[in-house]
Write a protein that binds this DNA or RNA. Structure first.
Length: 308
DNA sequence: AAGACGTCGCATATGC
DNA sequence: GCACATGCGA
DNA sequence: GTCTT
């Protein structure tokens, strides 16, 4: 239900379903009824409570079955699986008769969508940890040849120890790239230089977005039959590096927990900084941190490694 | 009853 | 050509 | 769709 709401453009309903599903999954006991779910679980209200009851009673959800038997919804869900295609583009095409990915190939696509169609199957395949390690080696080696002072971290589920990942999330920083430089919009073309190099060795095969702070693209390891993988490279100023590292290592759920703890203890935690928030709600200057552990220390909770 | 719900970089569209 | 809006991804 | 104001 959540995915359908998102593809319809109702992102807050999508969030509501995601929150409710998370609360349900985290609940230790069996839920005996929709009414109990509504009473016990934050994020489950009347409507989702009734849906839970329906599933308990009948094993299915009429509303969802209706959606899934609606050809327009089926097509909407299909088209939105192409990266670069969202609710607005999908709706436009469905109205003009597009039904399949093959149909989509004949339409006028922007560059991002062209790549999305080109690698439609590849991008849905998981990346085994062994391949993530190969990718990490290639990226780290190339970047250190460029400038030894660049710090490189592969974040996401890989850093949490997962046996497979959905994409490659690379976070970098450089001692000379500071908030001040960022604010002055100094042309710090680190990303461009890295991308040039990784392109030259044929590791990067396509680009989706190529800016001064953020790159999104496609990579392949140099092996026969290698699968195209989504890779992002983000550059953060050194002051933000550890909050960014924490944030992009996740998980999303862990981030929400930390953010909640931070608020309760009078702080605000984001990928950019951790700041004190006074009782009046006025935000103070960012607290400098030199490691992930220092952030946990400020929050007054025991440090847990990414894999925990 | 009504508004918030994360926020921002990048590509591209839109209007001047 | 520039300033701002929109779509999208994360 | 849910929660808060």
């Amino acid at each position: 239900m959540g995915t359908i709401q998102k593809n319809l453009g109702l992102k807050h309903k999508y969030m509501a379903y995601t929150t409710a599903a998370g609360a349900l999954a985290a609940y230790p006991k069996r839920i005996p009824s929709g009414a109990v779910a509504q009473k016990e679980l934050d994020g489950v209200g009347q409507k989702i409570g009734l849906k839970i009851q329906e599933i308990l009673d009948t094993g299915k959800l009429k509303k969802l079955d209706q959606y899934n038997s609606d050809p327009k919804i089926v097509t909407l869900n299909l088209l939105c699986r192409v990266t670069g295609v969202g609710p607005a583009a999908a709706r436009k095409w469905i109205d003009s008769g597009v039904k399949t990915i093959e149909d989509l190939k004949k339409e006028k696509l922007n560059h991002h969508q062209e790549i999305g169609v080109k690698y439609f199957e590849d991008f849905e395949k998981r990346i085994p940890r062994s391949e993530m390690q190969e990718i990490k080696n290639i990226v780290k080696t190339s970047i250190s040849q460029l400038d030894q002072l660049i710090t490189v971290k592969i974040c996401g589920s890989y850093r949490r120890g997962s046996e497979s990942s959905g994409d490659v999330d690379v976070l970098i920083t450089h001692p000379k790239f500071t908030n001040e430089k960022k604010e002055q919009k100094d042309t710090f073309d680190l990303i461009k230089r890295i991308v040039d190099r990784l392109e030259k060795i044929k590791f990067l095969t396509d680009h989706l977005a190529n800016g001064t702070q953020q790159y999104m693209g496609v990579c392949k390891i140099p092996k026969e039959g290698a699968i195209a993988r989504r890779i992002d490279i983000k550059l953060f100023p050194k002051e933000s590096f550890y909050t960014a590292l924490l944030h992009f290592t996740g998980s999303g759920e862990h981030n929400r927990q930390l953010s909640c703890i931070a608020i309760n203890k009078g702080f605000k935690l984001s990928e950019f900084s951790i700041t004190p928030v006074g009782s009046t709600g006025v935000e103070g200057a960012p607290i400098p941190v030199q490691s992930e552990k220092e952030i946990y220390d400020i929050l007054g909770i025991p440090f847990r490694k990414p894999s925990e």
